[in-house]
């Protein structure tokens, strides 16, 4: 009873979800205090809404790979490859003068998602079927996806798509862009998979101990392939958003997103050793990083490259702080 009483703030810090909500509120307040007028303006919110879905989706996908104790270094390049192939499909079949073609654009989105799924399955098969360590398998496929992207585009930027593409991805409902809705729906589905389904439980068990899962009669191959397939489709979705936002596709768009996505996943409470983590945490971390990024942008004298210092430093600090919080929690129990 006494223990219960004394742990008001401590209790919040013990639970990683409530820890994230607390951090979210603190960062929001700090940002508002630092740049009140600019930060709280509708324009800034619109700008933030436009930016986070593309790397947020990557972060959820990479976070899922981290939960099963692996990693996905190929996601960004799979995203680009899917939009390149979808873009080539459009080039091949669209003959209009820039108008119309909504149907074809929708089909090309489906193609992109399919490529994402295939790429993800390839990752899963290499990791679980052949037994290549996740880091190397996805490093190899990173090179492969990137390479095919370069081969298919000849190393240049693919553009000249129907206007319907840009119009669809840049659509807005009031203040809310459609990309935020896509992100929310995808996050919800991924969240249900990770937090509520049998597959989600199996993922965490596999991430904790992948020998124990064999002895418990689980199908390790299926767990890994499914996880990477979902991660690949999330990557493709992110690719579609980047493609539509700029109306162009390139083999190496967003190459800094890999690092940022890993940071977000770890910040969001995904254990880098595998076995635990939630999509809720990742989504909150995405929003925190976006707020920090926007506020950093408002200080125009800070070079954009300095953001890398913040991301890298934050990753290390968050890991160390989590270490001490978890240790304290263990000691009390």
């Amino acid at each position: 009873m006494n223990k219960q009483k004394s742990s008001g703030l401590a209790g919040i810090l013990d639970n990683s979800s409530s820890r994230m909500i607390l951090l979210f509120i603190v960062v929001f307040i700090i940002c508002s205090l630092l740049q009140g007028k600019n930060f709280l303006s509708p324009d800034n919110f619109l700008a933030m809404f436009r930016q986070f879905p593309e790397y947020g989706l990557l972060a959820i996908g990479i976070g899922m790979a981290l939960i099963i104790g692996g990693i996905d270094l190929s996601a960004v390049y799979l995203a680009n490859l899917s939009s390149i192939i979808a873009g080539l499909f459009l080039h091949r079949f669209y003959n209009g003068d820039g108008t119309g073609g909504e149907g074809l654009v929708l089909i090309s989105f489906v193609i992109a998602l399919l490529i994402g799924a295939i790429g993800g399955i390839l990752n899963g098969v290499l990791i679980s079927g052949l037994g290549i360590p996740a880091m190397l398998a996805t490093l190899g496929t990173q090179s492969l996806f990137w390479g095919f992207g370069v081969v298919l585009t000849g190393g240049s930027t693919l553009s000249g798509f129907p206007k319907a593409l840009g119009n669809m991805i840049n659509m807005k409902f009031g203040l809310i862009p459609i990309t935020v809705i896509i992100f929310a729906v995808a996050a919800l589905i991924a969240g249900i998979v990770v937090q509520k389904t049998k597959l989600g439980r199996e993922m965490k068990m596999y991430g904790t101990n992948n020998r124990a899962t064999i002895y418990s009669g689980l199908n390790n191959f299926k767990i890994v392939v499914m996880t990477h397939m979902i991660s690949g489709m999330l990557a493709a979705l992110s690719g579609i958003i980047m493609w539509g936002r700029y109306s162009s596709a390139k083999a190496d768009t967003g190459s800094t997103y890999t690092m940022q996505a890993i940071l977000i996943a770890v910040l969001g409470g995904v254990s880098p050793l595998g076995g635990s983590g939630s999509v809720t945490g990742i989504v909150l971390a995405v929003l925190i990083i976006q707020m920090l990024s926007s506020v950093l942008n408002m200080y125009t004298f800070i070079p954009t490259a300095c953001r890398q210092i913040v991301w890298g430093g934050l990753l290390l600090v968050v890991m160390i702080v989590n270490f001490y919080l978890d240790k304290r929690k263990k000691n009390r129990h």
Partner: peptide, 17 residues
């Protein structure tokens, strides 16, 4: 993960500062 984070940190110091 540690060295990826450190990598981002040092590149940021170089390019930003």
């Amino acid at each position: 993960i540690v060295t990826l984070g450190a990598s981002s940190l040092w590149i940021g110091v170089m390019q930003g500062i």
